[in-house]
Every structure is written in structure tokens, then in C-alpha cells.
Design a protein around this nucleic acid. Structure first.
Lengths: 202, 202
DNA sequence: GTCTATATTGTGATAGAC
DNA sequence: GTCTATCACAATATAGAC
């Protein structure tokens, strides 16, 4: 989507991604990013002018990676039940690769809704299509009567929440054992789909 | 649980609660809190010594208000299905009164897991009891076979997630109409319970 | 392009007058 | 108890040498 980045530019972006995702905008300093990249602060400004611009580069990338592509499943030719199994599995697997992204996006969206909503709109995202598909399935009788918004929110909630609440779940329920928590996530790829399909059985 | 607070002390705590809940620890400055309270920074330090101590006072209060009391429902004498209806309704209603608390807690827990977990443990919280109750119901056959952890996480997810993701849901799905979003939440008090009870029907 | 040095403003925290 | 004034340091950002 863009011209080739210089070596330093990618070095900076990688460092910025690590630090911003972990600490959020307010918890991040240009110094930390410079240290992470092994260069000095001035270079950050040379390439990205300001902390805000560097942040936006990282945010758009994180958002694009996580939110829109996942919805593609719903436009395929599987039957609806398969779409849901596929959606849950794909989504949880994707989040496992970047587990900090959910909380990062939720927090930044809260911190600066106006600007971030603007950024997201520029990615061309639109949830209405998925809603229409759900409505059609209800009409067809494939699934039970349910508010499509509730179904969508419930699906997202059960996929995303464990990542956002990881310290609490892992710390309190799983005695702080990271491996057990990962197994819990793996199992959920089918468990959550079962849960949803039971709930919306006609 | 504590001695009576002076008038100024509650004034400060109220202001600190507003600012911390809205902006998080990193996004909050002592100056903002002082302005919100209509006093000067020095007084904050006089009463609470440091930003950290003031924050901890606010965090413990927020956590105590939101997390442990809700679990009480499960120790009552209703039948299990009624407990779930009651839990969902009570929880969503409580969150509507302090809608920023979920994201606040999740974010701070991520920012400083060690210290925060320590704080939480001092409240005497323990999820094992609720898990045992769920296990008993499965054994009795009142509900279907399900991993108790999944059931607990799913319930919490569907109650909490809409608050954490409010800017996204309200902004994208509900055309930024706060009233429609509130109605959506009200409806969920029964919809989510129905969803869960369908999913775990034996 | 990359660095050091510096300008400027904001931060948490304290001293000391009243 | 409450204020003003101030400290020591960290923040974003820029100027200018190389």
C-alpha cells in the first residue's frame, strides 16, 4: 500500500510497535522507543515528525491487521454454522499472535474517540454487511430469532475479552500459569463456537 | 471500613476518581486532579503523599465496587437459572452506573499486573467458590457439560465487553447515538441471560 | 542520515509563609 | 490546612555539526 520503507524507518516502526502496544500512547515516551530501536530520539522526529504521527502509523497498522480482514469469512460460500466456527477459530488464532492488540485498541479508542474513529473510517470498514447476512439467516430459519447486534457483540466479546482480561484470568483463575492459559485459549477455538451454536439453535 | 474522611479528603477523592477513571494512571496529572477539585497540587500531596497512593485509593474503591459483590448472587438460594438471570441483570445495571470502570481496571491491570494483583488479593477475592457451584450444577444435570471456566469467562465477557468497547460499538454500529446504545444495554439484561441459558441447556 | 546539544514546557514533589 | 513559590527532572521537539 506504500512505497518501500528505508531500513531505519522499519527499525523505528518495529520498536514503536513494541512500545506503544505494550504501554499505550500515554505510557510511551520517545526515549523508550529510541532505546528499543537502539538509536536516538532526534531520528524519530526526522522520520515521523512527532509522537502523534508515529503513533498513528502504529495504530492504523494494528487496527488493519486485526479488525477488517476477519470479517471476510462471512462473505464466503460456507453454510452459516461453518462460518461461525471459522470466524471464532480464525479470530482467536490471529489474536494469539498479537495478544496486546485488543486492549491497546480499546484503550486508545476511549482516550481519543474522535480522532481514532476518523482513522478507522479511512480504512473503509463497515459492519452493516455482516448484519444483513445474519438477518437473512434468521429469515431463512437457519438460526433462532435473535437481535443481530447482540449476536455480533456476543461473538466479539467471547473472542476478545480473554485477551483484554488476561492478567486477571491468568492471575486469579489459572494461578499465573501462562501455559495453562494458552491451552485455555486453544480449547476456546471450538468451545466458543459450540456455545454460540447452541445458543442460536432454531 | 475506615475512619471518617475530612471534607477536603472526599473532595480530592471525588476529583481523583473522575480524572483517573477517565484518563488512566499515565494519562492523569496531579494538576488535572487539582483543577477538577478546585484546589492546588500541594494539597493533594498533603493528604495522599504521592500520585501512586492517591491512585491506589481510587483503584481499590473502583475494584471493590465492581467485582466481588456481584458474585454474591451465586451463594443465594435461587435455582441456578435464576442466579444467572440475576447475575447478568445486576452486573450490567451496576456497570451502567460506572461505565468507565471495566476498561479502567483492565488497562491498569495490564500496566502493572504485579502491584495490582497484590492490591486485589488484599480484598480477599476468590473465584473458586463460584466454580464449585457450577460444577455441582453440571453433576446434578441442571445444565449441560461445559468447562466451568468457559462459562464464567463467557458470562463476564458478554456483560463487560460492551462497556470496554463502547466507542467502537456506539460509533460504528449505532451511528454514535448514545440513547440507542443505552437501550441496547437495557435489552441485553435479559437477552444475554437468554443466550447463556440456551447455550447450556442440558 | 545520524548524531549531540539545547530550547521549552510540563511533571511529581517539597519548603515555607500564613 | 491551605496557599505560593520553587526544585529537580523528564517530556516533546528542534538546531546545527558532521
Amino acid at each position: 500500500m506504500n512505497v518501500k520503507l528505508s531500513e531505519t524507518e522499519t527499525l523505528i516502526l518495529n520498536a514503536a510497535r513494541n512500545v506503544f502496544l505494550e504501554n499505550g500512547f500515554d505510557g510511551t515516551t520517545m526515549q523508550k522507543i529510541a532505546d528499543e530501536a537502539g538509536i536516538n530520539k532526534a531520528l524519530l522526529h526526522y522520520y515521523f515528525r512527532s509522537k502523534d504521527r508515529l503513533f498513528e502509523a502504529v495504530f492504523i497498522e494494528a487496527f488493519a491487521r486485526m479488525v477488517p480482514n476477519i470479517m471476510k469469512v462471512f462473505f464466503s460460500e460456507m453454510e452459516f454454522q461453518e462460518k461461525i466456527r471459522n470466524f471464532v477459530d480464525t479470530y482467536i488464532t490471529a489474536l494469539q499472535q498479537y495478544p496486546q492488540i485488543p486492549l491497546f485498541i480499546l484503550h486508545e479508542l476511549h482516550r481519543n474517540p474522535g480522532r481514532i474513529i476518523e482513522l478507522i473510517k479511512s480504512t473503509g470498514m463497515n459492519p452493516d454487511f455482516v448484519m444483513d447476512i445474519i438477518r437473512q439467516e434468521i429469515k431463512k430459519g437457519t438460526i433462532a430469532e435473535i437481535d443481530p447486534y447482540d449476536l455480533m457483540v456476543n461473538m466479539l466479546a467471547m473472542c476478545i475479552f480473554p485477551f483484554a482480561a488476561r492478567p486477571m484470568i491468568q492471575g486469579f483463575i489459572f494461578k499465573n500459569d501462562a501455559k495453562v492459559f494458552e491451552e485455555f485459549l486453544d480449547k476456546r477455538k471450538t468451545e466458543v463456537a459450540d456455545f454460540i451454536l447452541n445458543a442460536i439453535k432454531p
